[in-house]
């Protein structure tokens, strides 16, 4: 691994325990994040995005599920660390802004004590220094220091999200995972928060794994984008490469959002059919039942995570990706 890589995930898989036995919700996921880069992770709800985020930070409790594969945070394999060693890495090297940042703050403690809990747990006991650091962070996310004395329920959704971002930056981590950080917010606040994130990221140079079901948003803010479907990564590439995605699912996903700058007439076009049931997934390519390009082989052969030669680190998981561009040109779609 080069010095330039902050996170390398290799053949990650995750099972959840259910009544009818373990179900695999993430399978053979491999990707890298480079220093100072924003990687967008897109996919329909239920495709396994949050599970990847939790596995990468080892938040899957042993009573809930199990995981395997390698998760290299620089030179340490998170997947193999014991509890103690893990606790010291957490938040220092990688932090999270959770999907439900609305509920990710403890309702009975003041914001200030919640900052304090983190600092104290990592051995920083100097109260004055701690307080100064909190103030600095809170102002960095454009809030006033009074917020520190508030309880979470006294803050608006956008303010809570800013607090969560401030907390995530507490120890200057190399990587910040943001799981749908703006999904619960209205459009205006979403825009503010996104530009805030971009500004901070440019200022401090941390890397971001930005998870969202909104591919359009990711294409606007990320450097590279990965597409997830039914627990598998389907395609990864730079934003430029996604101008012409290779995987039929990426295309469908792209088309299901209005193009940038499109006017009212351009309506969303959903993908027909339903996402796969993780307890009972289709054989072969997970997407083949909904794919307009599927052949017989798609239902039996599992496509590999294939590098697209000559194109940076673009990868795709489709056995027909070479044939498809021609087909769609002839209009058989």
């Amino acid at each position: 691994m080069t010095d330039n890589t902050v996170l390398r995930v290799d053949s990650l898989w995750v099972d959840y325990y259910t009544r009818s036995g373990p179900i695999r919700v993430v399978q053979d996921v491999s990707f890298e994040i480079r220093r100072g880069e924003i990687l967008g992770l897109a996919g329909e709800s239920g495709s396994g995005k949050s599970t990847v985020a939790q596995a990468v930070t080892r938040l899957i409790r042993p009573t809930v599920g199990r995981m395997g594969g390698d998760v290299w945070l620089q030179d340490e394999n998170i997947a193999q660390l014991d509890r103690k060693a893990l606790r010291h890495i957490k938040w220092k090297k990688v932090s999270i802004v959770a999907q439900s940042a609305m509920n990710s703050l403890n309702p009975v403690l003041r914001i200030r004590s919640q900052f304090d809990d983190i600092l104290q747990s990592h051995g920083q006991r100097n109260r004055q220094k701690n307080f100064a650091r909190m103030c600095e962070l809170i102002e960095m996310v454009s809030l006033s220091a009074e917020v520190l004395d508030a309880f979470p329920h006294q803050l608006s959704g956008g303010m809570k999200q800013r607090v969560a971002i401030a907390m995530a930056l507490l120890f200057h981590p190399d990587l910040v995972i943001m799981d749908e950080p703006t999904t619960a917010l209205d459009v205006i606040v979403e825009r503010e928060i996104v530009s805030e994130i971009k500004r901070l990221q440019r200022q401090f140079g941390f890397s971001v794994l930005f998870i969202s079901h909104d591919l359009d948003l990711l294409l606007r803010m990320a450097d590279r984008v990965a597409i997830m479907y039914g627990g598998y990564l389907m395609e990864i590439g730079s934003v430029q490469e996604f101008a012409h995605p290779l995987h039929p699912y990426s295309r469908a996903l792209l088309q299901s959002f209005p193009a940038i700058g499109a006017v009212g007439a351009e309506r969303r076009r959903g993908i027909p059919g339903y996402p796969p049931d993780p307890a009972n997934p289709p054989g072969g390519c997970r997407f083949h039942p909904r794919c307009s390009h599927s052949s017989e082989r798609c239902g039996s052969d599992l496509p590999v995570w294939e590098a697209v030669e000559g194109a940076g680190d673009q990868r795709v998981r489709c056995i027909r990706w070479r044939e498809i561009p021609n087909e769609s040109h002839t209009g058989s779609d």
């Binding site: 010291h88 938040w91 932090s95 990710s104 703050l105 907390m167």
Partner: peptide
């Protein structure tokens, strides 16, 4: 979530 997040925060 706030308990899971507390774990994430070390």
């Amino acid at each position: 979530d706030y308990v899971t997040m507390a774990e994430a925060k070390g």
